[in-house]
Amino acid sequence: MLHKCTISGSGGQGSALMAKMICLGAIKEGLKVVMTQTYGIEQRGGDSTAYVIVSDQPIGSPIVENDADIAVALSSSTYANCFEGVVPGGSLFTNSSMVEAPRDARGFRQVLLPVSDMAVELGTVRCANMVMLGAVLAGTGLLRLEVAEEVVRESLGAKKPQLVELNVNALRAGFAAMEKEGN
């Protein structure tokens, strides 16, 4: 089992947190994970991309080289790179609230979900990343939903218990929306 993921968004949209949640959940399942991020001279509002590799074997190359089988574009500014970095047969999850003119996917699946709008309905746009994570789990089987919920409880439970319910609901909403799409 090997998954390579590219998770992109604008700074503040929580793409790095989403990537970290995937990693923590995968570790719970006894899997190996590697996460790399761009680092250097960054600013808020700039693009942020995290690369995650999940495997049941020790991981060789830690670099995702335009060969992601799971890609997430939370913002329009990161969409083009994500679109071009999906392998044939892979899945691109596009935040259609932000990406106004999505391109036609050839050779891979594109899922269009308005996760920012869905997040606003749930209470705040800031949980759009968790809506998207729920959708990714339903669409790829990357992790079980219960494991992701456990990670949310453990990560936020101690310091910000009031955010647990919101984020768990966001995960479930994304998961349900994706299931409704018929995977």
Binding site: C23, K32, V33, V34, T36, Q37
Partner: peptide, 9 residues
């Protein structure tokens, strides 16, 4: 430095 900044299990 790339490996140094990489996060792993």
């Amino acid at each position: 430095g790339v490996s140094a900044q990489t996060t792993e299990s």
